[in-house]
């Protein structure tokens, strides 16, 4: 048998070559070129460091403030929301807050809500921008995207389950305005798409659509936003955990046996039991 080339793996054995930073004991703690204790701690916000760790770039404080505000918008203490529900279930069965919060965060790796749709929202608006710059009209962008879903108004960043409209959009618009962010090219296009959708389907922009366009204007890629927002919902999940952790165990939406609708096979015997009869 020929000896296989394992150089790539041999070069990595028993050593770490970090492109991010690390703790050089007795010297300092380094993070993307910054000495953390002297250059970051007390000088930049936590969210600036979150963005730095996710992207390798230290954003200006006001941009981090905007991202932080979006985290507040997307993490509220309502235990009906799917990820928060998991946190509440953790509380009612006395799981730890870490386990419950992390479980709720993990649930947002979802096609339906949370961070993946945000990533898809950025992909959509950036592709739409490209198409628009290549001469495709806003009306055609909407038509083409809806055609992928049988003509239905399913565009990432628009519409919303449970409710119509999104109170978080004007809230974030206010934050961005107060921090001095102008409406950039992606956001302008996102508004124009909203106008077409509203006219055709009576559907509007949701927080995903706003943030996707805003963050695209700030130069972020879909993958970068997914990384920055990894723990987007954590705080709301913790709140719902605490709510149930402080009540008698097992009392969060308790289910009686007949609260679950059984739709399966009726009672039957094992093959051996049938033979015995």
């Amino acid at each position: 048998m020929t000896k296989q080339d394992t150089t790539l793996w041999d070069q990595q054995r028993n050593k770490i070559i970090s492109k991010k930073g690390g703790w050089l004991i007795g010297d300092g703690v380094y993070c993307h070129g910054y000495e953390m204790m002297n250059e970051l701690v007390g000088k930049v916000s936590y969210m600036q460091v979150v963005v730095l760790n996710a992207t390798g770039r230290l954003p200006e404080r006001r941009l981090a403030e905007c991202i932080e505000a979006a985290h507040i918008c997307l993490s509220w203490p309502d235990s009906r929301i799917w990820c928060n529900h998991i946190g509440a279930l953790g509380g009612t069965m006395r799981a730890s807050s870490v386990a419950s919060t992390v479980a709720g965060v993990l649930a947002t790796d979802s096609r339906s809500y949370g961070i993946k749709p945000l990533k898809a929202g950025l992909s959509f608006i950036q592709a739409a921008m490209l198409a628009f710059n290549n001469g495709v009209s806003v009306a055609d962008i909407v038509t083409n995207e809806c055609a992928k879903h049988g003509g239905k108004p399913f565009i990432m960043g628009y519409g919303r389950p449970i409710a119509k409209g999104d109170e978080r959009v004007p809230a974030m618009e206010r934050v961005a305005k107060n921090l001095g962010f102008p409406v950039g090219a992606h956001l302008k296009l996102a508004y124009e798409i909203e106008s077409v959708l509203d006219e055709r389907f009576n559907e509007g922009m949701n927080i995903n659509g706003y943030m996707s366009a805003f963050l695209s204007d700030q130069g972020f890629s879909p993958d970068e936003v997914y990384l920055i927002c990894s723990t987007l919902v954590a705080s709301g999940v913790t709140a719902c955990y605490v709510d149930m952790r402080n009540r008698p165990a097992g009392t969060f939406l308790p289910l009686r046996c007949d609260d679950v609708l059984y739709q399966g096979k009726p009672h039957r015997l094992l093959p051996e039991q049938k033979e015995e009869l």
Binding site: P161, I162, A163, K164, G165, D166, E167, V169, P170, E173, Y191, E194, D198, N202, E203, G204, M205, L255, C257, D259, V260, L261, Y262, Q263, G264, K265
Partner: peptide, 25 residues
């Protein structure tokens, strides 16, 4: 110019109960 929709409930028909074909208690 930008005016967004007023927030309102969609009133989607959610199930009254969770259902399963697996387990009966």
């Amino acid at each position: 110019q930008q005016r967004h929709q007023k927030v309102s409930v969609r009133s989607e028909p959610f199930a009254d109960k969770v259902s399963t074909r697996i387990w009966e208690e």
